[in-house]
Amino acid sequence: MQHPANGQPPQYPTSLGTSDADTITLLGHDLAGELIGRTGFGELALWLVTQRRPEPGEVRVFEAVLVALADHGFTPTALATRLTYLSAPDSVQGALAAGLLGGGSRFLGVTEDCGAFLHEALTAHEGRLPGDTDDAGWDRLALETVRAARAERRLVPGLGHPVHKIRDPRTPVLLAIAEENGHKGPHLRLFEAVGRVHPQVLGRALPLNGAGVCGAALADLGLPIGLLRGFALLARTAGLLGHLAEEQRAPLGMDVYLSVDRNARYVAPPGD
């Protein structure tokens, strides 16, 4: 906030949007005359965060990530939305919020956790990173990174999936799209290498999950690491809207509730 000395009202500078009686300005452009019908939503979301108009390859990778994260079936986030809608059908916003609030370390939050994990490792080796085609160099860095995480008893985010035990079908597609559009950067290269070397440390092979590769891809687009979960939530909002629409057409929230409630049984607390 700026406080003018001439007695005028304080100023609140923003590089996003402003409006007056006749116009709406967004990102320095006339919303009605220059953006509506000419700018896609994915492009606009990137632009709002980065404060620069993204090029087409960036938009393609970004929108591929949004599609990959939009829905994954009857996840806890979807069930939270459906059951909240069952309880409060007059509050669509509450149902959406309930699902979004469930985006944490086990579901959706992996996107940010993986991006942050990779970014930390890359920052620690800044100026000493392998070349794009030096797979052996990336493998060495990945092995060092996984070993350090194991020594610190930290999980390696982005490994494993509760459903896709062998391969997450999203992962190779997202990697290919990033490569095709010139945005397969150090985060994705390190993540790929983690996938190749982690069995040497962990003693078992786990798939690189889609949420993790999404985090790596978003980080390679230069997006703020602390906002990566926000992009996952942006994507999942579309999926939750789909669940709400289906709940209106063919409700199953009551069935889920009754299935649990009617099959609950009392057990005495431990020690009784």
Score class of each variant (00 low, 15 high):
195 G>R: 08
195 G>S: 14
196 R>H: 11
197 V>P: 01
198 H>A: 14
198 H>E: 11
198 H>K: 14
199 P>Y: 07
201 V>D: 04
201 V>K: 10
202 L>I: 13
202 L>P: 06
203 G>F: 02
204 R>Q: 15
205 A>P: 09
205 A>N: 12
205 A>L: 14
206 L>P: 04
207 P>R: 09
207 P>H: 11
207 P>M: 06
207 P>A: 10
208 L>R: 10
211 A>V: 06
212 G>I: 01
212 G>M: 10
212 G>V: 05
212 G>T: 09
213 V>H: 00
213 V>R: 02
214 C>M: 01
214 C>N: 13
215 G>Y: 07
216 A>C: 13
217 A>C: 08
217 A>N: 07
218 L>C: 06
218 L>S: 02
219 A>S: 13
219 A>T: 07
220 D>Y: 09
220 D>E: 12
222 G>N: 05
222 G>Q: 02
222 G>M: 01
222 G>D: 00
223 L>D: 12
223 L>A: 12
223 L>W: 00
224 P>W: 13
224 P>D: 13
224 P>G: 15
224 P>H: 14
225 I>F: 03
226 G>M: 13
227 L>I: 08
227 L>V: 11
228 L>Y: 09
228 L>V: 14
228 L>C: 05
229 R>T: 15
230 G>K: 12
231 F>Q: 04
231 F>E: 05
232 A>D: 03
232 A>V: 00
233 L>S: 00
233 L>G: 06
233 L>I: 06
234 L>D: 11
234 L>T: 14
235 A>T: 10
236 R>M: 11
237 T>E: 07
237 T>C: 15
237 T>F: 10
238 A>V: 00
240 L>R: 03
240 L>H: 00
240 L>A: 09
241 L>K: 12
241 L>E: 14
242 G>M: 02
242 G>S: 08
242 G>N: 05
242 G>Q: 04
243 H>R: 06
243 H>C: 05
243 H>G: 08
